[in-house]
Amino acid sequence: MFTTGFKFFFGIGVALVTAGVLYGYTSGGNHMGPLSLGWKGGVGEHLGYGLLVGTGVSAIGIALTLIFFRDADPADQADYMGVDDIAPTTPVTSSFWPVVGAFGVGTMAIGLVLNTAVFITGLVIVGAVAVEWMMDAWADRATGDPEANRALRNRIMAPIEIPAAGAAAVALGVLAVSRILLNTTKLGAVVIAGVVAVLILGLGTLAASDRKFNRNLIAGGALVVGVAVLGGGVWAAVDGEREFEEHHSEHGDDAEHSDDAEHSDEGSDGDHSDGETDSE
């Protein structure tokens, strides 16, 4: 009659509520207070009493849920559904979204303390993950054929995902690389811009070819490049831009030309003598 799960949780619940009442009386409770949740008297030390009784009531709630569902016993489930055996669980397809979601929560945690913009970025990531996760969960059960499910999901989500992911990747990449270019020396900026251009060209060529690559290689490469670019961008943003010098033309107009400090040092002749150094 009473299921094992019910007995366990109900026993825990009753014991904790009883302990709470005892704790209430032994910590200064009086009259009917500990028995009436403080309605007719004091409950003693509030925190301990409240947590004991609250935990106990929660356990009793779980017990009632379990007996209502008969401990989710497979035989009872089959009887209820009128079938011989309940179906095995639906296979769940592999997905990046749980990791991205964890990363988003971590971003929110850091942003909560350090920077509101970082927090909002994490919030956006978690929001995007929630949508993707729901779509994946729906698609896993759409039909009995995993291939059809995958195709169905991609038909709905790919038109949204690809432009959004592309735009986000380009925006983040441009932002991060621009911070790096502004931080490094003039020569370094030229070299980095060249390397980035070659990388883009090379990756594009590989993507256009029919060659198959190891998935671990792709995941590892993407991770390394992503961390390098974003990490470099964050570091460069924190470190600040290199020192720029404002130039005024010989005719005294307001035209300004930017150049790096190295350049101004090398060519510090009369043309630059009245320039103002401005650390940005």
Binding site: V99, A102, F103, V105, G106
Partner: peptide, 23 residues
């Protein structure tokens, strides 16, 4: 059982743990 309940949540949990421990 053929798998754990809520496998994606279980996967998210382990990565959240690793990131949280790192922080």
């Amino acid at each position: 059982s053929t798998n754990i309940a809520f496998p994606r949540a279980a996967h998210a949990a382990v990565w959240a743990f690793i990131i949280g421990a790192g922080i």
